[in-house]
């Protein structure tokens, strides 16, 4: 792909918009369609595009495996952590209403955080799955 400057430049221009769109989807899910899950997928799509155009090595440098794993783990922990905080604040597990003085504010905070957790997890998980598949040597043969 090194000989296709237009593709490379186009991609470089496109990626910020994809990321922006992902962020919009992430945080606008309360009002319109969208949410953490879709945002995570779109965010991952940006990296997938990057990897396809600039090669796996560059993509891996931009998003190393360790980082992906930490984001993925953190996403789940964030979601469950919100639940635990609700527990500590005197509610049941995943009760957001106790997170703030007014129940609806608490709900907003809780939903924001869990959607963020979902987004992080889905993004990192999808990117990981793709990277792992793409890094596999097609000619590889395992002997057992």
């Amino acid at each position: 792909m090194r000989e296709k400057p237009i593709l490379r430049v186009g991609t470089k221009l496109l990626i910020p918009f994809i990321l922006l769109f992902a962020l919009y989807v992430q945080f606008h899910g309360d009002f319109g369609p969208g949410g953490g899950f879709q945002a995570g997928v779109i965010f991952a799509a940006a990296f997938i595009l990057y990897a396809l155009v600039f090669g796996m090595a560059n993509a891996r440098a931009a998003l190393p495996a360790g980082l992906r794993r930490q984001i993925m783990a953190l996403g789940v922990l964030l979601y469950a952590g919100v639940g635990v905080v609700g527990m500590l604040a005197g509610g049941n597990f995943l009760d957001y209403s106790v997170l703030s003085d007014t129940p609806t504010t608490g709900q907003h905070i809780g939903i924001f955080l869990v959607e963020l957790g979902v987004g992080m997890n889905v993004f990192a998980a999808m990117a990981t799955i793709f990277f792992v598949f793409a890094s596999r040597d097609p000619s590889a043969k395992e002997d057992g």
Partner: peptide, 21 residues
């Protein structure tokens, strides 16, 4: 109770937030 216009998000993230976890 939740205060969001998108009921899907309300149910997904709050009423049935545990499924989503």
């Amino acid at each position: 109770e939740v205060g969001l216009p998108n009921v899907v998000t309300s149910v997904l993230a709050s009423y049935r937030g545990y499924d989503t976890l």
